[in-house]
């Protein structure tokens, strides 16, 4: 048990009693043990689910790092030039068309627009969870895990519908 359990208030038995009751509450016990470091748990490293977990974990990690790096780069470049200009977000105007579609964003980047670089980073960010589902889908096809091929397939079609459907 953690140190809290040893805290006693001798002058007030009522408080001590209340404290001991509170500390024996399952939630508190669970939270206090969660503060300890526990030994690295053993996972079956050959299990397919474990391999999928490692793949997805890395994918998410590098995806979000890449996106952040691009946003940071674009942000610095943007602030260097436009940092002093007043901005108004109180009134909604909507973004210019060029920032509304992936193709438009790429055009903006190629024509040297600095806000375009930030928007490109945001596109990478949005793409990361999409790619995560896609990788899982391929993984389950390889495993011939039919229920999960259907499940991830449904999620992909939902994603495609919303990502592409918005432009047609």
């Amino acid at each position: 048990m953690p140190p809290e359990s040893e805290v006693q208030i001798p002058t007030s038995t009522v408080t001590a009693q209340a404290l001991s009751i509170a500390l024996e509450h399952p939630l508190v016990v669970d939270l206090s043990v969660s503060c300890q470091d526990y030994a690295q748990h053993q996972l079956d490293e050959r299990s397919p689910d474990y391999r999928l977990g490692i793949i997805l974990s890395n994918l998410l990690k590098y995806g979000v790092w890449l996106a952040t790096a691009i946003v940071l780069l674009g942000g610095i470049l943007y602030l260097v030039r436009h940092g002093m200009e007043p901005v108004n977000y109180h009134i909604f105007q909507g973004e210019p068309d060029m920032f509304r579609s992936p193709a438009g964003v790429i055009d903006a980047v190629l024509s040297g627009r600095r806000r375009g670089i930030v928007q490109l980073g945001l596109l990478f960010l949005i793409a990361t969870p999409v790619l995560r589902v896609l990788v899982s889908f391929i993984f389950f096809i390889k495993q011939r895990d039919i229920p999960y091929v259907v499940i991830t397939g449904l999620v992909i079609s939902g994603l495609l519908y919303s990502l592409l459907g918005a432009y047609f």
């Binding site: 674009g74 943007y78 909507g94 920032f99 930030v118 928007q119 949005i126 994603l159 919303s162 918005a166």
Partner: peptide, 19 residues
Amino acid sequence: AVSAGVYLARGYIDPGLSM
């Protein structure tokens, strides 16, 4: 990500604010 795709197309996602 599903919602972000829709909102991007509607011009809700602003680079200056999102950064």
